[in-house]
């Protein structure tokens, strides 16, 4: 739809605001050992509770802003990972969680492993660990949100 330049700017600002305050994430396991998956689930549960940042985990790639990938990419899962990524609407972001998703980890050299996630799709944030603690995963998501902030605002101070 064409609303004219001013309207588009306003709309973009509203969209960015909405995206920052409520990113919906989808999770895809492309051959992980489950360790990262249960830690991602743990971030949703009361002790860590990512929903306080407006983050919601849900099932359909069509609704998602952020794809969280775990595990090395296996031959069988490669096409599915690509398909899930392509189904997501623009703009889309990818977080690679765990050593395997970053570098293949312990599974380097296994015959059915294609490689790590960024050999298949572009990755925005890497969260290392085997598996990363839920705090680290939350930190990764918050860093991604910081990256999406409009450039006009002063850069956020890094929390260690």
């Amino acid at each position: 739809m064409d609303f004219g330049k001013t309207w588009n700017e306003v709309l973009d600002r509203v969209k960015t605001w909405a995206r920052l305050n409520s990113p919906w994430v989808i999770h895809f396991n492309s051959g992980s050992c489950n360790g990262c998956d249960i830690e991602i689930l743990a971030t949703l549960t009361p002790r860590y509770d990512v929903e306080r940042f407006g983050i919601k985990l849900q099932g359909s790639p069509r609704h998602a802003d952020v794809l969280i990938c775990t595990g090395p990419v296996t031959l069988q899962a490669r096409d599915r990972l690509l398909r899930v990524y392509e189904q997501m609407p623009e703009p889309k972001f990818v977080i690679a969680v765990g050593s395997c998703a970053i570098s293949g980890g312990a599974f380097q050299g296994c015959y059915n492993v294609v490689g790590h996630v960024d050999e298949v799709i572009p990755v925005d944030v890497y969260v290392p660990g085997c598996p990363p603690r839920p705090e680290a995963i939350i930190d990764g998501v918050v860093k991604l949100l910081g990256k999406l902030q409009p450039a006009k605002q002063p850069p956020q101070e890094e929390i260690v």
């Binding site: 492309s30 992980s32 296996t74 899962a77 296994c110 015959y111 059915n112």
Partner: peptide, 9 residues
């Protein structure tokens, strides 16, 4: 889908 080839590795 999650077969990695651990037994061979």
């Amino acid at each position: 889908y999650a077969h990695r080839g651990i037994e061979k590795a």
